[in-house]
Design a protein around this nucleic acid. Structure first.
Lengths: 209, 209
DNA sequence: GAATTAATTGAACGTTCGTTTTATTATTTT
DNA sequence: AAAATAATAAAACGAACGTTCAATTAATTC
């Protein structure tokens, strides 16, 4: 046989992306074969090469779009304020919501960096760095304004991202907690971590020596 | 050729473990072939099978010993006190020190769970759960004693472990920060996260409404 | 309705994979 | 020094891998 009835390039490509994200999130990039992926899509392996030149290019496309989507989502919700607390809250909320909604592609983007060629890796890391830089800037602004109490900005930024990305390891949308409850709990922990004063709050804790 | 001069089973097995941890941490379990591993050790691939029956059993052994080592290290340093703050501090310090010292096996243990068979996975997760349970107990004790202010114990425990394990992603021992500096910074963040009162401290922050 | 383009199949390519088998040599035991 | 055992090499197994190529059919254009 050859071209099948009702076949459509756009739909097939979307199906490939979808299946690839699911399979690679579950079994890992290396463990998923092009034949397995094709079977999931419902085509022969050769058909995949009409849409992606190599397996790695497929992975790279998925990761790049994930990172670009994350940055775009942040740009879209970034508040027009100069209160670092509001900015930090928006950052954390966006991060968790975005990642919970896209657990599988987050998993792939976080776990499969080592399967990229040098150039592709560099491109992804550049996007990641740009995203983390936003958080560092918020922490710096807040520290200078005196509303955060952060010792090491770079270290704190990494710790926060690590913590709030960890949600996707355990969170499943149908459990006792809703997404919004989780978001607020993590936000509260983040605020504590940065020593953020709540709006209306004036003083830090003082030890009674 | 066959048996080589000076060959020794004990040394070869140790060399296999060592090379396996390094290679698998760098390239991932699936991406490392038995031939590549053998070449790193300096033997033929067939020789590996004298020490480990399958590739997966080798992985499982490495992961099991890592987790057992982590639990053993904690048992060894667990303080004989009922102050949850001291216990939490000991837990965090031990966790970071252990993981920084064993970056590669930590990486393997965290990343390669999906390459295990069901039974082997269950065994590793059992160890992991036992380890996390220790932290939850500390948080629970501290919350009941009123020295911690934790909203959701399970969620906080996961967030803390995620945060303090994240050290190995970026920390390299020869940089501007020493291990002990990093340990203390993360400890401070953990204490803030849990709302821990410092010894000698009496009150929490109060909002000025 | 003929020509063109899009989408896919089926077979095949050479390579590498984890693993097994058999033979061979070094070392230890008797 | 002979016998037994430990440690390895060398070669081979069938299966699976990513990828390519030629053929074929569906849909679209002219």
């Amino acid at each position: 046989m050859a071209r099948t009835t009702g076949s459509d390039g756009g739909r097939t490509e979307a199906a490939i992306r979808d299946a690839a994200i699911n399979l690679m999130a579950r079994f890992g990039y290396e463990a998923v074969s092009m034949r397995q992926l094709a079977a999931e899509v419902g085509v022969q392996a050769a058909a995949l090469y009409r849409y992606f030149p190599t397996k790695e290019e497929l992975l790279f496309t998925l990761m790049r779009e994930h990172m670009e989507g994350l940055l775009a989502a942040w740009e879209a919700v970034r508040p027009a304020t100069d209160d670092p607390r509001a900015e930090l809250a928006a950052y954390v909320r966006n991060h968790i919501r975005f990642h919970v909604e896209r657990r599988h592609s987050t998993h792939v983007s976080n776990m499969e960096l080592r399967s990229l060629s040098r150039d592709n890796l560099t491109a992804i890391l550049r996007l990641r760095t740009a995203y983390e830089k936003e958080l560092r800037q918020i922490l710096r602004d807040g520290t200078e304004a005196g509303v955060f109490d952060v010792d090491d900005i770079g270290l704190t930024a990494i710790a926060i991202i690590q913590m709030i990305t960890g949600v996707i390891v355990w969170f499943r949308p149908d459990e006792r907690l809703s997404v919004e409850e989780v978001v607020e709990t993590y936000l509260a922990m983040t605020m504590r971590l940065t020593g953020a004063e709540k709006p209306g709050e004036r003083a830090h804790v003082h030890a009674n020596a």
